Simulated scan of single mutants.
Amino acid sequence: MAAKTMSAVQYEKYGGGAAGLKHVEVPVPSPKKDEMLIKVEAASINPVDWKIQMGKLRPFMPRKFPFTPVIDVAGEVLELGPGVSTFKVGEKILGLLDFTNGGGLAEYAVAPKTIIAKRPPNMSPAEAAGLPAAGLTALQSLKSAGVKFDGTSKSSNILITAASGGVGHFAVQLAKQAGLHVTTTCGARNIELVKNLGADEALDYKTPEGAALKSPSGVKYDYVVHCAPAVPWSVFEPILSDHGKVVDVSPNMTNIFTSLIKKVTFAKKKLVPLFLVPKEGELEFLVNLAEEGKLKTLIDSKHPLSKAEDAWAKSIEGHATGKIIVEM
Rank of each mutant, 00 (worst) to 15 (best):
D204K: 13
I191S: 06
Q177L: 14
G146K: 13
A129Q: 11
G179I: 04
G187F: 06
E201V: 08
Y221H: 12
Q173V: 10
T184I: 06
E107R: 15
G218R: 12
K143C: 02
Y205S: 06
E201Q: 15
K148W: 07
G166A: 14
H181C: 05
A199L: 10
A106E: 10
G168L: 04
A138K: 08
D204V: 01
N196T: 14
P121G: 06
Y108V: 14
L193F: 15
A171I: 00
H226Q: 07
G165T: 12
L139T: 03
A162P: 02
V147R: 13
T185Q: 08
A129D: 05
L213G: 01
K195V: 10
G135F: 03
L142P: 03
G146V: 11
S144H: 13
P121Y: 11
T184M: 11
S153E: 15
T161K: 03
N196E: 15
L180F: 09
Q177S: 12
K214N: 00
E201R: 15
L136I: 05
N196S: 15
L159D: 03
T137P: 01
P208F: 13
K220E: 09
G179T: 06
T114C: 01
G104F: 08
A134T: 10
E201A: 15
K118L: 13
P132F: 03
K154H: 13
Y223Q: 03
I158E: 08
C186D: 08
V167C: 05
H181D: 12
V225A: 08
S164F: 02
T137Y: 01
S141I: 00
F149H: 11
A145V: 02
A212G: 09
G166H: 07
Y108D: 07
A138W: 00
K143Q: 14
L139S: 05
L105V: 12
A171P: 01
G130F: 06
S164E: 08
R119D: 01
I158W: 04
A212N: 12
S153W: 02
I158M: 10
S124I: 10
G166V: 04
A163M: 09
A162W: 03
E192V: 07
R119P: 00
Q140C: 09
A171N: 03
K154C: 00
I115Q: 14
G210Y: 05
F149Y: 10
P132G: 05
V167S: 01
G179F: 08
P112E: 12
T207R: 11
A211E: 14
S155I: 07
S217C: 05
C227A: 13
A202F: 03
A162T: 02
K195F: 09
E127A: 14
I115A: 13
I191T: 06
A188Y: 11
D204R: 11
V225M: 05
V224N: 05
I191G: 04
A106N: 12
L139F: 11
L131N: 08
